[in-house]
């Protein structure tokens, strides 16, 4: 393996790669995420890994581990920060532990379309955040593996924050989610995913929040029939690698890796945009009802999170809104 001492890799990286013939270079990276084998993200990650292996003639081998088999969530990002031969694929809010503004970038009620988010990750504002992440040892290869808006799934029709009063909603155990859903009016109940479906069947919680893909893939439509299109979060994953490990990779392989992850993201967004309508139709055929909500009211209810969430740059909400205004104007 590489990365024994990151300092070494940094100083020797360039010299060795120039001297050594490229045929000798071989790096095995382990890539971890929490998605299940049927989900598009898993397929996309496998496709990208295969294509990198092929295009680098086997020099860069990325072994993929779905379902959190090895380090996931905060642990995955920690592997990256600590310089392991590891690629972490997680929600950008996990980078927020190191550069808090990433939490704001995926904060509540920002985007109306996938394209808006993808455009945001290309702005100078986010480029500056990426530079700050690199100072912490995190090289961001992509932020654009979008997998859909998260909506509120209950039996009750939810249109305003008041409708969520007293509704127990399962959320992942994350500060951002708990605070957002509380601000939206619900009683956030953090539960592990494995207990969620039975907790819903048995009424320990009244509903969950998640995308239509989650809804269909886990047969949530069998137990909850209404989806309120709150679009409170846009679910997305980024791809992260240690800057030290990255710097030790010969430039021509770096380019291949970067290009493949970019292409993979574009491909996945296209696919999911295409599939979404079909998924909605299928859910409707099972009797699921969708309703629009008073989005302004929810935006208002959650706006304070950008002021109170720990570590965010003051005024970050306005900066994001300015960028969004430009993006929407185009």
């Amino acid at each position: 393996g590489g990365g024994e001492t990151p300092a070494e890799a940094e100083t020797e990286g360039e010299v060795t790669t120039e001297v050594e013939s490229d045929d000798d270079y071989k790096l095995v990276l382990r890539l971890s995420h929490v998605f299940s084998p049927e989900e598009q993200l898993t397929k996309s990650m496998d496709l990208v890994a295969d294509s990198i292996y092929e295009k680098t003639n086997g020099a860069i081998e990325i072994q993929t581990f779905p379902q959190g088999q090895i380090a996931a969530y905060k642990d995955g990002v920690e592997q990256v920060v600590r310089g392991a031969d590891f690629i972490s694929v997680e929600d950008p809010s996990y980078i927020g532990d190191y550069v808090p503004d990433f939490t704001a970038m995926v904060g509540p009620m920002l985007y109306d379309t996938y394209a808006e988010y993808v455009a945001m990750t290309d702005t100078e504002l986010v480029a500056d955040m990426k530079r700050r992440a690199e100072e912490k040892g995190i090289k961001i290869l992509s932020l654009d593996y979008v997998f859909g808006f998260r909506n509120v799934i209950t039996d009750k029709v939810i249109e305003t924050p008041a409708d969520l009063n007293g509704v127990r909603l399962r959320v992942p155990g994350s500060q951002l989610f708990i605070e957002t859903l509380n601000a939206m009016g619900a009683n956030s109940t953090p539960l592990p995913w494995g207990e969620t479906i039975s907790a819903m069947q048995q009424g320990v919680v009244d509903g969950i929040e998640g995308s239509e893909f989650t809804n269909l893939g886990n047969s949530i439509y069998e137990v909850r029939k209404n989806v309120a299109l709150t679009r409170h979060f846009l679910g997305a994953c980024g791809v992260y690698i240690s800057t030290d490990v990255w710097d030790g990779i010969p430039a021509k392989y770096q380019k291949i890796i970067q290009d493949e992850y970019n292409a993979g993201a574009i491909h996945m967004v296209e696919l999911l945009t295409e599939q979404h309508a079909g998924v909605v139709e299928e859910l409707e055929s099972y009797g699921v009802q969708f309703n629009e909500v008073d989005r302004e009211a929810f935006v208002e209810a959650t706006a304070h999170i950008y002021d109170t969430f720990p570590g965010l740059t003051p005024g970050i909400y306005d900066l994001l809104q300015e960028e969004l205004a430009i993006i929407r104007g185009q």
Binding site: Y73, K74, E78, R82, G173, Q175, P190, P310
Partner: peptide
């Protein structure tokens, strides 16, 4: 020592 700056998921205290 390395995990001092890593916050927990819900309480946000040092892990």
């Amino acid at each position: 020592r390395a995990s001092v700056g890593k916050p927990t998921a819900v309480l946000g205290i040092s892990s």
